[in-house]
């Protein structure tokens, strides 16, 4: 049972296409797990689409003659849409540490393109992926007993649990959970059974304690 969901504002922004690619991917992955949010999105999307539809067509002046565009579309060959058999969606698998996880479809292509894992202290591995210009996105793996040291962020941090579970002072998070952290959250995360997450950050994480500080961006290290 999923405990942590997207807010209505997040779903509305997502449905309107206004979220960054990083956030969009995290929300889309959550929707693969969460029927509740998926249904909510469907309603919001219908609303957004209706508002859009009610824009009076007179307000739009298209000066160009539409006939050539229409003709060119109608003469484009149609792709073969396969007569696909029915199956529960095939999720790609991902192995990290000694564990295997099912990856949500939206992350499948990213995972298949190959990730570069980097080991961090505390039984943690991190693989960064670039999706857009505003966020830093990563896959974060905690091995059983693993721990992400005390850290804060300069901006918002979104975490989607792909598999396994972890906990912090505020609670436990499981497969499909969507977690938002603000700027002032200073927290340590631990995992008993191992955990794979997809995270989206506005800005680099700043470690505040111990050896982990070595992984802060250089500018930070010079300042501290």
């Amino acid at each position: 049972m999923i405990q942590h969901h997207c807010t209505s504002q997040e779903l509305l922004a997502f449905g309107s296409g206004k979220t960054t690619a990083g956030d969009s991917v995290a929300i889309s992955a959550h929707l693969e797990f969460c029927v509740l949010c998926a249904n909510k999105l469907r309603q919001l999307e219908a609303q957004v689409a209706q508002d859009w539809d009610q824009l009076s067509p007179e307000a739009v002046v298209v000066r160009e003659d539409p006939a050539p565009i229409l003709d060119s579309i109608l003469s484009t060959p149609l792709p073969d849409l396969p007569d696909a058999p029915v199956a529960v969606s095939n999720r790609s698998k991902m192995e990290v540490g000694e564990q295997q996880f099912d990856v949500p479809a939206v992350l499948g292509r990213l995972v298949e393109s190959g990730l570069k894992w980097r080991k961090l202290p505390g039984g943690v591995r991190l693989a960064k992926v670039k999706l857009d210009n505003q966020n830093i996105c990563s896959f974060l793996y905690m091995q059983p007993g693993g721990k992400v040291g005390m850290h804060t962020h300069e901006g918002k941090e979104t975490t989607l649990v792909i598999g396994g579970s972890f906990f912090d002072a505020e609670g436990e998070y499981r497969e499909g959970d969507f977690i938002q952290r603000g700027e002032d959250d200073n927290h340590t995360s631990l995992s008993k059974e191992g955990c794979l997450c997809f995270t989206v950050q506005d800005n680099p994480v700043v470690f505040t304690k111990g050896l982990s500080r070595l992984f802060n961006p250089i500018s930070r290290r010079l300042m501290s």
């Binding site: 969009s24 889309s28 396969p82 058999p85 199956a87 479809a105 939206v106 292509r109 999706l131």
Partner: peptide, 18 residues
Amino acid sequence: CVSADDIWPLGEPPETEN
């Protein structure tokens, strides 16, 4: 590396699942 149709699928997955 990620397209909008991955994020908001327009219908059933286009690939044929075997």
